[in-house]
Design a protein around this nucleic acid. Sequence first.
DNA 1: CTGAATCCCGAACGATACTG
DNA 2: CAGTATCGTTCGGGATTCAG
Lengths: 139, 139
Amino acid sequence: MSLGHPAETAPPPPYSVYSESCPTRLVLDRLADKWVTLILVRLAEGPRRFNELRRGIEGVSQKVLSQTLKRLERDGLIVRRAFPTVPVTVEYSITPLGRTLAETVQALARWAEAHIEAVMAAQAAYDAQIGAQASRATT
Amino acid sequence: MSLGHPAETAPPPPYSVYSESCPTRLVLDRLADKWVTLILVRLAEGPRRFNELRRGIEGVSQKVLSQTLKRLERDGLIVRRAFPTVPVTVEYSITPLGRTLAETVQALARWAEAHIEAVMAAQAAYDAQIGAQASRATT
DNA sequence: CTGAATCCCGAACGATACTG
DNA sequence: CAGTATCGTTCGGGATTCAG
């Protein structure tokens, strides 16, 4: 029992997002993308076609949407299915893994919508304070 | 009753992260930052000094950390306190508002640490598939 | 319709040096 | 210790064009 087959119950790897070399950093960096959150939440609602997504997410360019979808597919978070119609039809849908993440990022979007006013108020107060300091400095 | 004072019970503003012009986009964009998540979670653990944060978050440069902290302070998510010691001591701490967000982003970090292996497996499978397609194309 | 490829610019970042 | 300032560089991302 002391040596040999080390697989089975390997010690839980000490993944930490605070280690620069930790692969979890890659995941966080992936999520640190303007569009990933929006795409995941959209696809969590149901399958979408390319231009359907594009229209539903204002401001995203075709290039960036394409790139982002490809990365998400590579990460196993979404699935791409092409139908040999004319013209070709492509449908994106979320995977079970992606769905678990979508629920988390959805909370982020909800937080943003819920606390936006508090944030904007804080910004206004901060800017006013800075403005006061600036004029005091020039006086 | 038909016209006049429209204030009181204004219709709930239809904030949506999917509208390009919606201010919630700004918040999402702010969160879409490699370091914001890490900083917020760190400060949720307790107050930290500047270089303490810097050391605790591998890979962040002093410049970027400074910028990010300033933005977070402006958003009302963290508070900066300077003590007139020699040399000067600065302490950053999280606000109640920031704490509500920290709990959400903490879920993200936990997701990353929990599902990193599934993601890496998906990436490997995807890359193998692409490699197969590539060699098939050249054949 | 769904992308891939190209060009191009501004924002962001790292490194360094300097200040209080 | 806790930043700010400047510089040089990289890189993401928008607009456009081409292809299956």
